[in-house]
Nucleic acid binder design. Sequence first.
DNA 1: ATTATTGTTGGTAG
DNA 2: TCTACCAACAATAA
Length: 277
Amino acid sequence: MPELPEVEHTRRNLERWMKGATIVHVAAHDTRAVKPKPRAFESALVGRVVKKIERRGKWLRWTFDDGSLMFGHLAMSGWFEPSRAGAPPLRFERVAIDVKRGKKSMRVSYVDARRWGGMTLATADTPTWKKLGPDPLIEGIDEARLLAKLARRKKTTIKEVLLDQTLLAGVGNIQAIEALWKAGIDPRSRASSLAAKEVSALVRGLHWTIERTLADLAKGDEGEENPFMIYGRKGTPCPRCKTVLQRIELGGRTTTFCGGCQRRLGRGRLGAGRAKA
DNA sequence: ATTATTGTTGGTAG
DNA sequence: TCTACCAACAATAA
């Protein structure tokens, strides 16, 4: 489920459900989903008041009244779901957090079939959090800095580099695919082959797809089954040029792209051999 | 039965 | 220190 837009959507939900609330009960059903171990996790959280919930890339950070922190990651299949305090556990529920704000009580459940995500308590920012690159929605993307960083990645394709969370925080497989399509850049292009002009188009593409996905999430159930322009649409015509979309693998991840209007960079020199789309 | 899946991490090697 | 590559983590849905 989650890349930057989904995690931001989740953060907004969590803020509505938990901000300013007191944690009255916690049940960690799965030892893999929490750190420290369930009993210690539960007792550390009970009685805490949620002061704020922030996001950086795909990571969430809760700050509590005593200054302690909780980091959360949804990995591939995690999400948070509201329900009634005291309700029986949901399918694949790993953690249930019961909160109370004024007279209102509710439960916030962490559900994760694949069990790759979870929550970690801490007293300071984790190394992983600190290493995250700029977040497109928080500090934005500095194109000159991005260009300089891409220039050092001589071997790797632009698609693979975009998934590096220390370069930009929050870009995942789908957002990378969509942004490259929007920018008209072939995902197989070496990262170092992008010039300022292409970096600029890519940054616009990233903002475009992030905002688009957020808008779709805001619709709730009204959203479409596949709200993306080309992700998951192999074999269908490109919405822009009608060429049949292809699917390949890059760095172990499925990549959809259009061979008709996404240009392969870094081939030939001085523009030789580059056909107009 | 086979294949694919929205992500990170830790080890290795250079 | 930085870059690149790979296996591991697990459970579902088509």
